[in-house]
Simulated assay, not measured.
Amino acid sequence: MNMDQVKGKWSQLTGKVREEWGELTEDEVMEARGEREQLVGKIQEKYGKSREEAEQEFDRFVAGL
């Protein structure tokens, strides 16, 4: 799934995102609206990961959709 598809299906994917990153609130997930950079930043902040780690984690998640 590419990022355009992710953005288009964001409301359906929020549950999967919350399953993957349970520390993110529903509001934080909805606020990202499928924008890679916003969600990566939230993952980085909540989980104390480096930018690179958060990007790799998000990219693996999207690739698995």
Rank of each mutant, 00 (worst) to 15 (best):
7 K>N: 01
23 E>F: 11
13 L>Y: 10
56 Q>S: 07
64 G>Q: 07
16 K>D: 12
18 R>Y: 07
14 T>N: 04
1 M>D: 02
29 V>N: 12
48 G>V: 07
58 F>T: 04
24 L>W: 07
22 G>M: 13
9 K>P: 00
48 G>S: 03
49 K>S: 00
46 K>M: 05
40 V>R: 10
10 W>C: 15
36 R>T: 00
15 G>K: 04
35 E>K: 14
15 G>D: 13
36 R>S: 00
28 E>D: 03
30 M>L: 15
54 A>N: 03
36 R>V: 01
5 Q>M: 13
24 L>P: 08
43 I>V: 04
43 I>A: 03
11 S>R: 12
6 V>G: 04
16 K>S: 13
7 K>E: 02
8 G>N: 11
26 E>K: 12
26 E>V: 07
17 V>Y: 09
11 S>C: 11
21 W>H: 08
9 K>L: 08
4 D>E: 15
19 E>W: 05
8 G>R: 07
13 L>G: 03
3 M>L: 13
16 K>R: 14
28 E>G: 05
21 W>Y: 04
55 E>L: 14
40 V>G: 08
60 R>Y: 14
57 E>K: 06
60 R>C: 10
13 L>H: 06
62 V>T: 05
24 L>V: 08
8 G>I: 01
64 G>T: 08
10 W>L: 11
61 F>W: 07
12 Q>E: 15
25 T>S: 13
61 F>P: 14
58 F>C: 04
42 K>N: 09
64 G>D: 10
65 L>D: 02
46 K>I: 04
54 A>T: 01
56 Q>F: 09
3 M>S: 09
24 L>Q: 09
65 L>H: 03
8 G>A: 07
35 E>R: 13
13 L>Q: 06
56 Q>R: 10
58 F>H: 06
38 Q>N: 09
2 N>F: 04
26 E>W: 08
24 L>N: 09
64 G>A: 07
7 K>G: 01
54 A>Y: 09
37 E>P: 00
24 L>T: 06
57 E>A: 09
36 R>K: 14
